[in-house]
Design a protein around this nucleic acid. Structure first.
Lengths: 244, 244
DNA sequence: CGTTATTTTGAAGGACTTCAACTCTGGTGG
DNA sequence: CCACCAGAGTTGAAGTCCTTCAAAATAACG
């Protein structure tokens, strides 16, 4: 168990050298506890810090003029938060804790210094951005071109796979930790319709549910129905520069 | 007029030093002409190269099982193409020329070497990725939570602003260069409904149209209707490392 | 100048939303 | 310990936005 969550994620992509590990650990020297429902960062406010999420579940979302909400992404332990926010004078999105969380804040300068001192880490961060980008385009295609049922199925698969990243004991069953309203705001649906789609997936024998826990009964059928691709697989990082 | 399209884009964000300009020019030593409708890169095929788009309009899209298409993004001169593709063994998306294009291919190693030699350029590329990310999340919110009319209006505003990036003479009127089917595939609508929305925007005095040219008559009303934010503005790059 | 792509228009159908009411669950305090 | 309450889940009926299907009109192209 390394001292850095972020290093663990990156360590699954490449073999990190001691100097890189040390540099990553320095990003996580400070800790901050965030209560469920509290905001890590607010849309349209200035953000001077980035974060590594150490524990818990975070979502990013935007609010539209009519009051509706679009959830953009869910973040899991080891993820970096707020990269898009430091690029802008005002954060383009809100970061909100879905469970009690621990985040490790560090400032822009630390990020900047790290990328100069460790070009390979800088390239790896770019790789993570691209993985996130492709995951976002998958969701764009889902919202633009697939049915409500497919979108909900895709969300369930994605959540299970990402939760499994931090807890290898998870197989087919897991606690989602989202309300149906939140599922709706992530998939572009109403909570009412999410409910009907979950029910339908259950009736068709794809999933089972009991008190917040979801079981993926027929995973293959779900993946087919949802056009799902795990974007943390199939990578090619052979071109990365040598470690510093 | 610099020798590098990419340097021109980056040069609008920061003052580039000669060594950086020279490094960027080396990326654009080779040229390749692409016919309208031809593909620069195919989904699920291996990509060894990245590209700088020098001339023309390119789109990226994915095809779903049912044959429907989701256009993910449009690319303009000075944009880098294929970054997400080199991260994966197989490209997650197709790149297709919407007009006759000129692209400058360079290989992964050149990219890797550049990011080591010029940390600030590496950071700038990360900034461009974040701009693209935020633009994608804007579209995600549009598809998830806004009406057909708002999505079409947002697309028109975005296209005008990006075209203006390469041609400052463009004000309110411009040639879109997209069919209504393509607008539909970008906004998650059918071409039939795109037609009705364009017509409605016209009837409401927001736009005017004549033979492929669109005029933004009431730009403010459009921006309001579309929740539109120009993501190339409002940046804060004060934290970037010093040039090399 | 014929052929094909694109745009336009109408009518009917369907997927999802809206509204409204009811049920279930977990937490809190009397 | 249990009554109460607020939040979340469930269900039905009606409505709306967008799609689908079909066909005509127009534009683009070799």
């Amino acid at each position: 168990m390394s001292g850095s969550c972020f290093a663990e994620i990156l360590g699954e992509l490449v073999e990190l050298v001691p100097a890189e590990k040390a540099a990553l650990e320095r990003l996580e020297e400070r800790q901050r506890h965030i209560r469920r429902g509290a905001m890590v960062l607010r849309e349209n406010e200035r953000a001077d810090e980035l974060f590594i999420l150490r524990k818990g579940l975070v979502m990013s979302y935007v609010l539209l003029d009519d009051g509706s909400r679009q959830i953009l992404r869910f973040y899991f332990p080891g993820d970096m938060l707020g990269l898009s926010s430091i690029v802008y004078r005002e954060s383009p999105e809100t970061l909100c804790a879905l469970s009690d969380c621990v985040v490790c804040p560090f400032d822009r300068q630390a990020f900047s210094a790290l990328s100069v001192a460790h070009p390979r880490l800088s390239a790896l961060i770019l790789v993570l951005c691209q993985i996130e980008r492709v995951a976002l385009t998958d969701r764009l295609a889902a919202l633009g071109r697939t049915s409500a049922k497919a979108r909900v199925a895709a969300l369930l698969l994605e959540m299970r796979n990402r939760l499994r990243g931090t807890d290898k004991s998870i197989e087919k069953a897991f606690t989602l930790g989202l309300t149906q309203e939140e599922i709706g705001d992530a998939t572009g649906l109403t909570s009412v319709h999410v409910n009907r789609m979950l029910r339908q997936l259950e009736e068709e024998g794809m999933i089972a549910r009991e008190s917040g826990r979801v079981t993926l009964v027929d995973e293959d059928a779900m993946a087919r129905a949802a056009n799902y691709v795990n974007r943390y697989e199939g990578l090619d990082l052979s071109w990365l520069p040598a470690p510093q």
